[in-house]
């Protein structure tokens, strides 16, 4: 039987500013001000947890482990993963300024410890909008990668991934262990009910200090400043279609 051996799934989840919030730039322009701002699980990572839990519910995955790297308050995002159905969670704790290469190196250490067959990440964190970590992790562990997944299917010792790419979709098969990054259409995450959240609060969190792993995660990019983008010049309301057409004609775009 194919599923007799370990089919552990590791999911990487990031604690980010809630997607509904428009962040403000600090007065001195040094960074974004996120003090006291509502935070939660990165939406793509919520999709990743959902997919892992569904694999377990279908009897394909044997265990779902969620990991986050960050400050102590990232625990909230791990609790979210537990409430959705993750079996275990790991916090790699650090107050350091994290960038994808450093995160990928720490995740590699977790992969070596946990030995998962499948690793699922989000395609992009909605705070830094970088979209790098999954591919970097795949490179560091010499695994295949299925980016922007909209459908995944485990088939023996491979996983088939349908990817959302420019101009349509494609399908690749990856040898397991492999790395998958989620796109929006992979699934619709379940709604968490209060009892599940209460249960999640009682579960233990495995805490590793990043510093104890002896990995160089010093940032390679230095943020020099942040700024608001230039606002568009205000527009006008037109009364009807004829007036719209007239304005477009004057703007010479017809």
């Amino acid at each position: 039987m194919e599923w007799d051996h370990n089919m552990k799934v590791l999911v990487a989840v990031k604690h980010v500013v809630d997607y509904n919030i428009k962040p403000r730039v600090k007065q001195d322009g040094s960074d974004v001000d996120i003090a006291g701002v509502k935070m939660g699980i990165n939406p793509f990572d919520e999709i990743a947890v959902e997919e892992a839990v569904r694999l377990k519910e279908r009897g394909i995955a044997t265990e779902v482990v969620a990991v986050t790297i960050g400050k102590a308050n990232s625990q909230d995002t791990l609790r979210h993963a537990l409430a959705m159905g993750a079996d275990r969670v790991v916090l790699v704790e650090t107050d350091a300024d994290l960038q994808p290469l450093g995160v990928a190196k720490l995740l590699k250490a977790v992969v070596e410890r946990e030995q998962p067959r499948l690793i699922i990440l989000g395609k992009q964190a909605i705070d830094d909008d970088l979209g790098q970590t999954g591919q970097m992790l795949a490179a560091l562990i010499n695994a295949g990668q299925g980016t922007f997944a909209s459908v995944i299917e485990v088939k023996g010792d491979e996983i088939e991934v349908t990817r959302e790419i420019d101009g349509g979709t494609d399908v690749v098969a990856l040898k397991l262990p492999a790395v998958v990054t989620t796109d929006l259409r992979l699934n619709e995450p379940r709604f968490i009910k209060l009892p599940a959240m209460m249960m999640a609060k009682k579960k233990p969190i495995d805490n590793i200090k990043a510093a104890d792993l002896g990995i160089d995660i010093a940032p390679r990019l230095k943020q020099l400043k942040v700024a608001d983008p230039e606002p568009r010049k205000p527009g006008i309301k037109v009364a009807n279609v004829a007036e719209l057409v007239e304005n477009l004609r004057l703007a010479e775009v017809l």
């Binding site: 428009k22 290469l101 909008d129 970097m136 983008p229």
Partner: peptide, 29 residues
């Protein structure tokens, strides 16, 4: 490291890129 989605480049190694859904422009070196 990698710099994703740069909207402006100042050689040799400074970049402007949008973060937080383009609500903020970050300059990195």
């Amino acid at each position: 490291a990698m710099i994703s989605d740069a909207v402006s480049i100042t050689a040799p190694a400074t970049y402007v890129r949008p973060i937080y859904a383009g609500n903020v422009l970050s300059t990195v070196e």
